[in-house]
Every structure is written in structure tokens, then in C-alpha cells.
Nucleic acid binder design. Sequence first.
DNA 1: GCAGTCCGTTGCAAAACGAAACGGACCCGG
DNA 2: CCGGGTCCGTTTCGTTTTGCAACGGACTGC
Lengths: 163, 163
Amino acid sequence: MPATIHADANPNGIAHEPECSIAATLEAVGDRWTLLILRDLFRGVHRFEALHRDLGIARNLLTDRLHRLAGLGIVHRVPYQDRPIRHEYRLTTKGADLSPALVALMHWGDRWYAEDGPPTLLIHDACGTPLDQAVSCPECNETVTPHHIRSRPGPGRTIEETL
Amino acid sequence: MPATIHADANPNGIAHEPECSIAATLEAVGDRWTLLILRDLFRGVHRFEALHRDLGIARNLLTDRLHRLAGLGIVHRVPYQDRPIRHEYRLTTKGADLSPALVALMHWGDRWYAEDGPPTLLIHDACGTPLDQAVSCPECNETVTPHHIRSRPGPGRTIEETL
DNA sequence: GCAGTCCGTTGCAAAACGAAACGGACCCGG
DNA sequence: CCGGGTCCGTTTCGTTTTGCAACGGACTGC
């Protein structure tokens, strides 16, 4: 039996109730473009025009997504000139905190779709070594594979549907 | 400056060319429902009717997504009865390999949207300890934060646009 | 036969998306 | 001052994707 990542039966409101954190996350960033926009922000592409060019996203959608991300506190608008007052978009702590998720998505793509090897390597700035990502047990000090991951209701679970 | 997760300028074909593994991954599983379906598969919900009930997804979409996932080799259809021959959907290795991504997305939701604490805890089956996930450097034997992540073109990058 | 289960399809309206034109605020060279 | 060029949106409109709910098929069990 594979990893049990438990969750609930309600694909709704964003911080609307504690039900499933995966659903909550996808509510915030789980549309066709948002994670790509965030990828570009990590990558150093911060301005509207540059994002538009780089992603090929429709301008109206880009406007919408950027405002939405700002509203969610994932991104903030930093003025880089006045006069035609212009802002660039930068990750907040909350946004930067999505880094592990992007890393995980990238690793999966590397593994299953990069026939000629990864198009991009993530390396340690200090030593240049390609990085790993792993789930680990702080108690046992060992890496845990999906098969050894179990789940149980946490403190935030409402007392309903034990399923 | 936050983590640099570099990527390309083309949000296209799935295994269509090596450009950006994040885009490739999102091409495969980056729509509104797919990751939630996968979450349920991890969680032990394997049948059409159960997925439909649990997720509230439209039946036509569920059909479509499951077939798509099967086509991509992320899921396979296992007969569990003949006669009205019926299949259940199970993760392949490729599908199970998305575990780290789901874990990362869940952690982020836990951190930013679970006011009363995580609705679900992932624990080590051997000892019951809540698990961590981290990016680490195999050389330095230390955890690497987003700020210390750099990126560089890997072997799979086509020789174009140095940006 | 008749109800119930399970999976999937169909038809249609609503929502999201994509492309491209348009508008505003500016800078610059002539 | 005028005609470009840049940068950031907004608007319009046609195409896709969703969501919803009814329907159909293949059984089982009573």
C-alpha cells in the first residue's frame, strides 16, 4: 500500500476551514499559470512585461494572477520607478516558502520527462553540488520512503467523518 | 534574493522537449483536479464512485482525468471484478513518485492555512514521529534553505537562449 | 421483474482562457 | 511639438474547459 496522505471530502474555500492542506494549497496556487509565475519569480523574472514574454500567458490573465497572488500575500508589489509608477513583483516569505513544492515538482519532471537529463540543476551555492530533497524522520534520523509514510488526523481536524 | 529555480520560456508539450521540468510536470498533473485525485489515490480511495463522492468532481471530468492519468502511466486500471468488468485506479511507480510533491504542497498549506494546526500529520510508520521534508546537500551533509539554492543548466538543456 | 450499485456518456449552460486591439503615462530623438 | 518606443494594464470577443444533472448499460440480489 502506497503512502497514505490522507485528506477530506471538501474541495472548497481557501483558508475557509481546515480540511486538507493540499486542497488549501491548490486553492491558492493550483491553477494552470500560478506555479509557473512563481517559478519565474524565483528565477529572477519580476516584471509584468518580462513575465508576459517569458510565459506566453495572456496579459489579462497575468494581471489577474499577479493581483490575486498579491492579495493572498504570496507576492508583493514593489515600486521600482515613479512617474509612470511601476511595480515589480517579489515573493514574500509565504511565497518563498513554496520553494520545496517547486523543487519537488521539478524533480518529478526531471525523473519522468527529461530524457536527456535535467534541463536545470539545483545546486548548493556553497559547493556547487546538485541538491537532494527527501522526507525524513527526525527521530530515527533516516530518510523515509512513501511506503513508510502513514498519516493521522492532526490538531486542526474538525471532528467529523472518521470515514 | 530567493531561490533561483531557473526555467525556460516555453509552456508547451508534455515530454515534448526538455525545457523546464516544472512546466513538464504541470503539463501532466497541473490542473484543478488531478493532484487531488492523486491525493485520494495515495489515501486509499481507488474507485470511480468513491472518488466522485469524495472529491465532488463532475463525473465526466473524473472519467477524463483518470483516463488521462492512465495514458500518462501515472495510474493503472486494475480489474477488481468481471462481469460488469470494473477497474480500480492505482498509482504506478511514476504516480507514487509524486509523493514528495504532495508532501510539499501539504506542508505549505499546513503552514499558511491551518490556523488550528495541521488537519493531517504525516508520520513515520516505524515510530510515529511527524516527518520533515528538506532540501539537502549530499556533499556538505546539511539542509539547504531557498537562499542557498542556485541553479544552472543541466545536461538536458537545448543550446538556446542564454537569457 | 424491480430496485440498487457502479461506471461512464451526453447535452447544455456557465466560467475560464487566449489573442489581440486599445488606452494611459511616460521618455526620447528629431 | 510630434511620432516612436516602453511598460502595464483593460476591454472585447471567440474558443475551451468546467459543472451539473439526466441518461444508459451491465450486472447483482431479492
